[in-house]
Computed example of a mutant assay.
Amino acid sequence: MPLDEDKYPAETGRRRFVSGVVGSAALSAVGVGGAAAADSLTSSSGEGGGTTTFVAVENTDGPAPRGMPIIPIEIDGGELKGHWPEYDEEAGVAIDRDYGGSGIDYSSAWFQYCGVQTSPGIYPQAEAENALLNTQGDFEWQGEYEKGATLTVDMFDDYQEWGNGIGNAGIGKPASANWRSTDEGGVSAQIIRSVEVEKMANGEGKYSSLSSSIQDFISEATDQGFIAWLNKCTHFCCVPGFKTQEGSANFGAENAIYCQCHQSVYDPFSPVQKQFVALPRPPQTEG
């Protein structure tokens, strides 16, 4: 399977623009890790990088080179959690091999890009909070609940009707969340509860064409119509959103995940299996 590359060839002006911005002081505004992400891009030192196969919400438009990695869902007493794989000392990563009988290995390396690899909670052995925590950030309904509270199933009871005036109502109810939280913070995630996810998990209708490996993975990684992903655009590390931007309609993305920075679009109901080169984590220091 070929690795995903930048969609813009090296000889184009667009590629030169992107490269120029990456090398500029503007990088200080790039999400988790900031300048540390640049160091990881240009340095061979570190731990746990390399070619990684992962399952993503598909990138369907814009400059993003690949989709964003799916976070498998667990529901524990009504609380929504993102599953973290078991630590494999020999491999040096947290990894669940043959996840859900899919033949796909779910690994902590899926999240090692865009500076996220510098987050304490992404270290394979880290003791971090797997619960998806309310951020109150993007959706008015989340303001009804305490910031930092664990998102729960009952908060999404109206998912079959919910709408906020962006795109069509009833496609799914989203929330922004903090995941793998430690005392030093966590990483950005989004979660949706949708009838489409229920159909996808059961291989119904258009989802009957999913490969058997993707189908088995999604059946295990979703629950009660919930799907989640790491919310870091793979193009330039911005934070996109499902139904967070009214302007998304101008790019045909009102019912999709839209990144307002450079107009990348992702389909949360189209899981794909891809490869990328995971960035190394900074070496851990003795406490």
Rank of each mutant, 00 (worst) to 15 (best):
A131T: 15
Q112L: 08
V277G: 07
Y207S: 01
E184L: 13
S213C: 09
T244P: 00
Q215Y: 10
G23W: 01
A169N: 15
G50A: 04
Y258R: 02
A201R: 14
T285G: 15
V239T: 15
G203W: 03
P124F: 12
K173E: 13
S270L: 15
D4W: 03
S102H: 07
Y87P: 13
G163R: 02
S44A: 12
A228S: 14
A169I: 11
G82R: 00
D267L: 08
T42S: 14
S28C: 03
G121Q: 04
Y159F: 07
D61L: 10
P2V: 02
E246I: 08
T182V: 01
S181W: 10
I71Q: 08
G33A: 06
N231Y: 10
D88L: 12
V22A: 00
L3P: 06
A10R: 13
A278E: 09
W84E: 04
E254S: 13
Q215T: 05
S270K: 15
M68A: 04
S44D: 12
F17I: 02
A128M: 10
F251N: 07
P65A: 07
D183G: 15
C238P: 12
S43R: 02
W229C: 06
K7S: 00
T135N: 03
T60L: 07
L279M: 11
F17Q: 03
F242G: 01
E140I: 12
V55S: 02
S181Y: 10
G252S: 05
N231I: 07
P85A: 02
V22P: 00
N231F: 04
G46P: 05
R180I: 10
G185L: 11
D138H: 06
I122M: 04
V93L: 15
E79T: 13
V32I: 14
F242D: 01
P69T: 05
A10F: 15
P120V: 06
S107A: 15
R281Y: 05
M1C: 12
